[in-house]
Structures are given as structure tokens and as C-alpha cells.
């Protein structure tokens, strides 16, 4: 088994095919989208492949150490930051192909007009621990 992080972006991903902001959808289309996401996670729990999923608020801060005895420097949010994570799902699957397959399904969640959003999701493998048996 290998763990993968599926990342959804507010900003920074290539433009999806069906690119309409959610508040311009009909309420029924929003419900259908939510149901799809919910069913997807529930199905992965059933197959034993779901690990975790969280959504993030769009606004955050940048923080860094500013030397001994000084409070940390905070800044931002920076409008020019290209990448803004909206949320993630962690899955534990048998193969890289399976991770791609599931990300593809998630990207097919319905949006405006009930048609798939074709949203670009980022799939990142977790670094693993070394195997016990090496020869």
C-alpha cells in the first residue's frame, strides 16, 4: 500500500474545463456536487482506501522566525502567491495507477449545468519508510 495526497487548489492549478464559480450554479447543482464528494469519500472508506480529508479556509498568513527573543514575523496573504491550497484527501492505495484513477473520478464531480468540472487535482506520493528486507 502507498499513500497519496490529492490536492485541490483555490488558485495555481490549470483552468478546469467547466470553469464557473459555485455561486453561479443552481442550488440543485451545488447539492449534486456535495453529494458526489460525499459519496466518493464514503466509497473509499468502504474499500479501505480513505485516510483523511480536510478543507482549508482561503485566507492564511506567512510566518517566519525573526531571531532570539523576537516575535515571529507575519505577513500576507500575498496576492501574488501563485499557489493556494483549498483542501486535501489522503488515500492509501495499492498502486500509482489506482491513485490516478481515483483522482480522475474526483475531478469528474459535477458542476455548472450538471456537467463534470474536469478540475485539475494534484497527486503527490508520500515519501515512504525504507523496507525492512533490502536483499
Amino acid at each position: 500500500m502507498a499513500k497519496y495526497l490529492l490536492l485541490k487548489h483555490y488558485r495555481g492549478a490549470p483552468t478546469p474545463v467547466n470553469d464557473v464559480p459555485m455561486e453561479k450554479w443552481t442550488p440543485e447543482e451545488i447539492s449534486a456536487h456535495m453529494q458526489y464528494m460525499h459519496d466518493f469519500a464514503a466509497r473509499l472508506e468502504n474499500t479501505g482506501e480513505f485516510v483523511d480529508g480536510q478543507a482549508l479556509a482561503p485566507e492564511g498568513s506567512w510566518v517566519r522566525y525573526d531571531g532570539e527573543g523576537r516575535p515571529p514575523v507575519t505577513d500576507g496573504p500575498f496576492a501574488e502567491t501563485k499557489d493556494l491550497i483549498a483542501g486535501w484527501m489522503v488515500i492509501d492505495v495499492d498502486s500509482h495507477e489506482r491513485a490516478l484513477e481515483l483522482a480522475g473520478e474526483l475531478s469528474a464531480a459535477p458542476g455548472a449545468g450538471g456537467k463534470p468540472i474536469h478540475e485539475w487535482l494534484e497527486v503527490r506520493p508520500f515519501l515512504t519508510a525504507p523496507p525492512t528486507i533490502t536483499d
Partner: peptide, 19 residues
């Protein structure tokens, strides 16, 4: 909004009025 359920609710309200 910092609350997932509230955010969904507010988006739906916007969608309802836009529709």
C-alpha cells in the same frame, strides 16, 4: 466563513438568488 457547513449554506444562498 471558517465553518464548512456554514460556507456551503452561504454559497447555496448566493446561488439561489443568482438563479
Amino acid at each position: 466563513s471558517s465553518d464548512a457547513a456554514e460556507r456551503d449554506h452561504l454559497v447555496r444562498q448566493a446561488a439561489r438568488l443568482n438563479a
